[in-house]
């Protein structure tokens, strides 16, 4: 009944959302919706450490993955968020779910998303997408008037669904690369470009409108509400992430990066380079590389030799990103 036997469905939905969290993003600090990825308790604890336990010393020598030069910091933040989620965020979100009835939760979610539509509109314009800008404008108007200040998403039923858009996309549209992957405390997965974009988006309303958007209590209040709401919405997805991955941190990173590359590609119409892009990769069979045959026999059947080449190997993949990786050869 669920869908992706292959790719953990939930996290796929959850990951792109950091961007979607834009609704929550009046305040830059706000997007706690990003906490979503943070996460669910039990399984993770086993998942990652189990790995480390397999080879505690070697793990120190593992180089960062392509597209993740700050992996050490990011992983530390990931485990920080995991603990935070376990201790505070998830329990609070479940409390929010129990106390606030569903219609009220969706009303708040819609209203906050509606308040962010002007930011989406601005980015549509900056991206030179008049059609999108018109749709966003119509949506904002319809929901503000007929949706009782955005509490009801009437426009969605009129074929004008909410579209995620923000400064991160606009920067990407004009060729700004994503920069290093960032896993931010509380906020979750991002990149240098998307983090800067989030700050920019968050500054729009406070500067353009002022009250109440520039008030700290308003920013914190809306941040908390949208963060808890997102945590409730993605609860099962987050569980899926942990249940279906060996390394939830790396899985989430991959999904985030692929999904953001797809967002940018949808705007520019050309593929966006992503360290995890297989779509544009010719996917050469490693066994077909010239080194394949000779190398294959000596290290047969042992674990140790596999670990050694690892330390030597990362440079080529790092330098070339995955595209060339398969042909780069093991040594």
């Amino acid at each position: 009944m669920s869908v992706s036997a292959l790719v953990p469905l939930g996290l796929l939905l959850a990951a792109p959302d950091p961007q979607a969290t834009a609704p929550a993003t009046q305040a830059p600090v706000t997007a706690p919706a990003h906490e979503a990825p943070t996460s669910q308790p039990a399984p993770p604890a086993e998942a990652v450490p189990a790995t480390a336990a397999a080879a505690p010393e070697q793990s120190r020598h593992v180089r960062h993955a392509p597209g993740d030069p700050l992996e050490g910091f990011n992983r530390a933040m990931f485990s920080f968020n995991t603990s935070l989620d376990k201790a505070i965020v998830r329990p609070a979100a479940m409390g929010y779910k129990t106390v606030v009835p569903r219609p009220a939760r969706s009303g708040l979610r819609n209203a906050l998303a509606n308040l962010n539509e002007p930011v989406v509109f601005l980015n549509d314009v900056l991206q030179l997408k008049p059609g999108n800008a018109f749709r966003t404008f119509s949506r904002f108007l319809i929901n503000s008037v007929f949706g009782l200040a955005g509490l009801f998403d009437v426009a969605n039923h009129e074929g004008l669904p909410h579209r995620k858009n923000g400064l991160g996309n606009t920067l990407g549209r004009y060729g700004v690369k994503s920069g290093p992957y960032l896993y931010l405390p509380v906020l979750g997965p991002s990149s240098l470009r998307d983090a800067v974009g989030g700050v920019g988006d968050g500054a729009v309303l406070p500067n353009a409108v002022g009250e109440p958007f520039d008030r700290t209590d308003y920013r914190i209040g809306t941040a908390v509400v949208s963060g808890l709401d997102a945590r409730v919405q993605y609860d099962s997805e987050i569980k899926t992430l942990y249940d279906t991955s060996l390394d939830p941190y790396a899985t989430l990173r991959s999904v985030y990066q692929q999904s953001r590359a797809a967002d940018i590609a949808a705007i520019t119409g050309k593929p966006e380079a992503s360290p995890d892009d297989t779509m544009e990769d010719d996917l050469k069979d490693p066994a077909a590389s010239p080194e394949a045959a000779p190398v294959q026999s000596p290290p047969a059947g042992t674990t140790a030799p596999e670990a050694t080449p690892t330390e030597a190997a990362p440079p080529p993949p790092d330098a070339t990103l995955p595209k060339a990786a398969p042909s780069a050869g093991p040594k």
Partner: peptide, 14 residues
């Protein structure tokens, strides 16, 4: 791509 990323660390360390 997702599996590559997911499995890389376990493979590299163990």
């Amino acid at each position: 791509a997702t599996r590559r990323s997911d499995f890389a660390r376990v493979f590299q360390t163990g």
